[in-house]
Design a binder for these strands. Structure first.
Length: 433
RNA sequence: GGAGGGGUUCCCGAGUGGCCAAAGGGAUCAGACUGUAAAUCUGACGCGUGAGCUUCGGUGGUUCGAAUCCACCCCCCUCCA
């Protein structure tokens, strides 16, 4: 791809929300290989799929011949970004943040290429330059360039300032300045001239553009991507089981695959643009083909396949599909013993029980403890609707107290496995020790 | 430091002595319908199979009885100094 075609490409993928310095930026990108960055703050020990969009855009830029820098916010994570947050955030300890930084650095590194010559990627931590800055230098050399009048006008903090019942601490208010300083610093260190981020980062990015000009007289640019939304208005990236994380220890490849497979029709094509490297023309063709056909569209399957491979690799995808095939084909009985064991290794939720555990206790207890159900009430509700099965046999309300009859020895797969199912989509494998 | 407003179950938000496990909405879960969709309808939605148990910032108190009243404390917001 030509250096400059990247903007056109991103536009076709609907990945551009706002551009700072549009024409100049296109010109800038067309005339050489540039350095750009995106920041990722450690707010947990893993990124979630919301961060995938900017991460992949970094890679898109790299594929177009530009040099990406992934910045991990070891310093900014200590402060907390107030942008569009309704409430002040709880501060985490430096120890915790530092541990998170390590994990996120590794995670981020998987999406960009560190060994491709001149435009090899970099990962940096803003603690490198923020740690030794003293308060007075900060206030005199950096803070002096910011107008509080302008800062309180930022849309990102407006609700915190104007809304009755909320507020903002000086700490979080200062976040904008820290992130702005990052940009100017990267501009100095690596001649970084573009910052990208989610649309919520617009205020922080323009702050950095202004500061870089004031500090170094350099013209730099910004680009934001749209916030990922869902057709039904629910928050993207969350499911009943919680957030969809990139870390396979937190969200198994199977769960990850299922998440994408369950995308709404109206979202699937947009997500294909956002989260895959498929050509836009191919996505358009797929959409047209799906429209022609009756029944289930192919888009979700393609989406799940592509994104799972991207994040969890071919092996992760393989595992996810294997489980999906086994569970949704209804042919659990046809699985071999090693298949069943493989399911467990592949990330199907599982736990080990002893026969003696069935002597007393209740089914609701067992299913709740296993994590299959959130509460006994849920199990109770499902039992009343024939929505709980073990190895394919539906259980009723009467079975709740008779645990041993739910797990009959003769019904065990290979003498020791029970696959419990709650509703249509939730499974848990029990192995008898 | 002063004056005022506020902290309710995942979120928003009603509730000012018993009828309150706490309205309503959202989110979520399950069932029907389907395509492992959407929309719609139904049910659940603090915990417990159950009797029952534990909740309304915290601690004490008043009362037969408190989310509701009182005292003190903690936290948040607004204005003043």
């Amino acid at each position: 791809m030509e250096n400059g075609a990247i903007i056109e490409n991103l536009r076709a993928r609907e990945l551009i929300f706002q551009l700072a310095g549009e024409e100049a930026l296109v010109e800038h990108l067309s005339t050489g290989s540039r350095t750009l960055y995106c920041g990722f703050d450690p707010t947990a020990d893993s990124l979630h799929i919301g961060s995938l969009v900017p991460l992949l855009v970094l890679r898109r830029f790299q594929l177009a011949g530009h040099k990406p820098i992934a910045l991990v916010g070891g310093a900014t994570g200590l402060v907390g970004d107030p942008s569009f947050k309704a409430q002040e955030r709880q501060l985490n300890t430096p120890d915790i943040i530092s541990a998170w930084v390590d994990k996120i650095r590794d995670q981020v590194a998987a999406y960009i290429d560190f060994d491709c010559g001149a435009n090899s990627a970099l990962v940096v931590n803003n603690l490198e330059w923020m740690a030794d800055m003293d308060v007075l230098s900060f206030l005199r050399d950096v803070g002096k360039h910011f107008s509080v009048n302008a800062m309180i006008q930022k849309e990102s903090v407006k609700q915190r300032i104007e809304r009755e019942g909320s507020g903002i601490s000086f700490t979080e208010f200062t976040y904008l300045i820290l992130q702005s300083y990052d940009f100017s610093k990267l501009n100095r260190l690596y001649n970084c001239t573009l910052q990208i981020g989610g649309s919520d980062q617009w205020g922080n990015i323009t702050g950095g553009i202004d500061l870089t000009r004031r500090l170094h007289g350099a013209q730099v640019y910004g680009l934001t991507m749209p916030l990922v939304t869902k057709a039904d208005g629910a928050k993207f990236g969350k499911t009943e089981t919680g957030t969809i994380w990139l870390d396979p220890a937190r969200t198994s490849p199977y769960a990850f695959y299922q998440f994408w497979l369950n995308s709404a029709d109206t979202d699937a094509y947009r997500f294909l643009r956002y989260f895959t490297f498929l050509e836009v023309a191919d996505i358009v063709a797929l959409e047209a083909a799906d429209r022609e056909r009756q029944g289930r569209p192919e888009a979700q399957g393609v989406l799940a396949t592509e994104v799972t491979r991207l994040v969890h690799g071919a092996a992760g995808l393989e595992a996810a599909r294997r489980i999906t095939a086994a569970l949704f084909s209804g042919s659990i009985a046809s699985l071999s013993e090693s298949d069943v064991q493989q399911l467990r290794l592949d990330g199907l939720p599982a736990s080990t029980l002893a026969r003696s555990d069935f002597e007393d206790g209740t089914l609701t207890q067992v299913l709740t403890d296993s994590g299959l159900a959130a509460s006994g009430k849920q199990v109770k509700d499902a039992l009343g609707r024939q929505a709980v099965t073990i190895n394919g046999r539906p259980l009723g309300w009467d079975d709740n107290m008779r645990l041993a009859q739910c797990f009959l020895p003769e019904e065990a797969l290979f003498g020791r496995f029970y696959l419990a199912k709650l509703g249509k989509k939730k499974y848990h494998l029990f192995e008898i020790a």
